[in-house]
Amino acid sequence: MSGPRRKGLYRADESRNNREGLKGWLDPTGYGWERVSYWLQRLTGLFLLVYFVGHVYETSSLTGGIGSWNAMLKFTETTWGHLFLILVIGTSTYHSINGIRLIFTETGIGVGKPGRPEYPYDALSLNYRQKSGIWIALILAVVAMAYGYNVLFSGG
């Protein structure tokens, strides 16, 4: 299309792309438990990645002498250190359990078999086996965090 643009006529390549971008996956609401699980799996994954890099860096500080190592140990004995460790326990538990569910799901196990859709067209793949897996991961994460809290703050 060349020449002057007709009034009121729009071309797709000229219009805004309308991609949701990061906002698309940062908002877990409105699409059910599977979307919440997807969101949590990503957030916990990113958190654990940052923790893992920090952990390797911190462990490598041993080569600089026992002083820096002891300083880090001292941080983990503070209230903020305890809360951070509880967060590590919760995120790693959720990420692992939900990850196991996803390994099965993404190999086609537990999502059901195709059939003839009937009104109201509830999706077969969003079944209670999947939802149960998500809830179990959440409950175990909370239990692990409660246990961690008990050990760290009460000396349990």
Binding site: W25, Y31, G32, E34, R35, S37, Y38, W39, Q41, R42, L102, T105, E106, V111, G112, P114, P117, E118, Y119, Y121, D122, A123, L124, S125, L126, Q130
Partner: peptide, 19 residues
């Protein structure tokens, strides 16, 4: 990564996430 949103909004019961 199986967020399942596609199947949630499908008006015809196609269930793309399953496929």
């Amino acid at each position: 990564h199986f967020s399942g949103s596609c199947s949630k909004v499908c008006p015809k019961g196609v269930d793309p996430a399953l496929g």
